[in-house]
Amino acid sequence: MPIYSQKVMEHFMNPRNVGEIENADGIGEEGNPVCGDMMTFYIKVKNGRLEDVKYKTFGCGAAIAVSSMVSEMAKGKTLKEALKITPKLVADELEGLPKNKFHCSNLGAQALQKAIEDYQKKQAGGKV
């Protein structure tokens, strides 16, 4: 049996929304090359919604599929809704991840969260 679900393979082979956003409203980075996976998420916010979500990912098949899935799940959502995306929900949407990959590769939700926090910090800074 292959180690990855069909859904993981599909996203790995055809990842959605890959790239960077110039002048992004928020940037979030998670992971490091020592553990093997690293993701940077970029967001564009308009009227409290994630107008665009892009990312760059260094890592295994699971890490790439997770990034792709998170970008799909988050796009168009309000910030509040997007913050509710958890690693568990991402894994479920991907029809499961291998047990040993759940923690190390499933960093997309955290990276997105960091990008949103980065945006919120900038907003707060701007108002002061």
């Binding site: 790995f12 093997g36 890592g59 295994c60 990959k101």
Partner: peptide, 20 residues
Amino acid sequence: ESMLMLLSSKGIAVTSGSAC
């Protein structure tokens, strides 16, 4: 691993010493 899997999708079997 991502190289290995993309090679595998082209019918090539290799291995890697990466953490993943």
